[in-house]
């Protein structure tokens, strides 16, 4: 199949970028990234710079890849990262517009590559259970209701790709935040730090220039791992409860 691509080209964070048009060939068995590999091989052969994009495992689990195809983060197929998106879902003559994630919190590094380190800072602020190596009890000493464990796993599947932020008109990271808070908050191990976790992670997201959630739901629609909007409700509950519970403590420490 023949495709026309319009790709965002930007040399680095400080230069302006623009859409550049390319014509390329593809076949239906290729993944979207393999189609770009072929385009890049052609560009290099002509002495032009290849299009930079993040990718690593190409199995949809590492969360490295991701860009916007015709206005949709990770492209048209639901629950699929671009590395797992195959060209059989496109047709001859298609015209595709590829752009990086757009969010103040994710500055462009080059072409389709953005800086998502703000996500790491959110996790560092409280997205964990504080248990140093060696201090754990026997794994079966703490039974967990299967339903809770399964739901924690649903939330834990987040791959941190950033599509939710890119799709959100407010560039909110709420789906990402709530996935981690729900994963840990649903488990008995996660209870002792549950309230502080909610406060600290939300504070880190605010510092990271992410917007607020207004329950639009675009994030859930593009999430390649099917993280559900209901986790945001859980987060909000925790956050509100924590904000009241810890009000006195905060006043005292201020």
């Amino acid at each position: 199949m023949k495709l026309t691509l319009h790709i965002w080209r930007q040399k680095n964070a400080s230069s302006p970028g623009k859409m550049v048009r390319y014509e390329t060939d593809a076949n239906e068995h290729m993944s979207f990234l393999e189609m770009l590999d072929v385009l890049n091989e052609g560009l290099i052969a002509k002495g032009e710079e290849p299009v930079a994009f993040d990718h690593d495992c190409r199995e949809g689990i590492c969360g490295s890849c991701g860009f916007v195809i015709n206005g949709v983060a990770h492209g048209p197929l639901p629950s699929t990262t671009v590395c797992q998106l195959h060209m059989r879902h496109f047709k001859d003559g298609d015209e595709l517009y590829l752009e990086p994630w757009r969010a103040a919190a994710f500055p462009v590094i080059k072409d389709l590559v953005v800086d998502r380190s703000a996500f790491d800072r959110i996790i560092a602020a409280g997205g964990y259970i504080s248990v140093s190596t060696g201090s754990a009890v026997d794994a079966n000493a703490l039974p967990v209701r299967k339903k809770d464990s399964d739901m924690a796993m649903d939330a834990a599947q987040c791959i941190g790709c950033g599509a939710c932020v890119a799709a959100c008109p407010n560039a909110s990271a709420s789906l990402f935040l709530s996935a981690k808070m729900s994963h840990l908050g649903l488990l008995p191990q996660g209870q002792p730090e549950r309230m502080e976790r909610a406060l600290n992670m939300v504070a880190a997201a605010n510092e990271g220039l992410f917007g607020s959630c207004t329950n639009i739901g675009e994030c859930e629609a593009v999430c390649p791992k099917g993280i559900r909007l209901e986790f945001i409700a859980r987060m909000n509950r925790d956050f509100l409860k924590a904000a009241w519970t810890f009000r006195q403590e905060r006043v005292e420490s201020d």
Partner: peptide
């Protein structure tokens, strides 16, 4: 054996039986 203990304590959601055990 220590690894499993450590990971469960960290909140790794390993598959469980209906009784709540691993």
């Amino acid at each position: 054996v220590n690894i499993i203990d450590q990971c469960v304590a960290q909140g790794v959601p390993f598959a469980r039986e209906y009784g709540g055990l691993l």
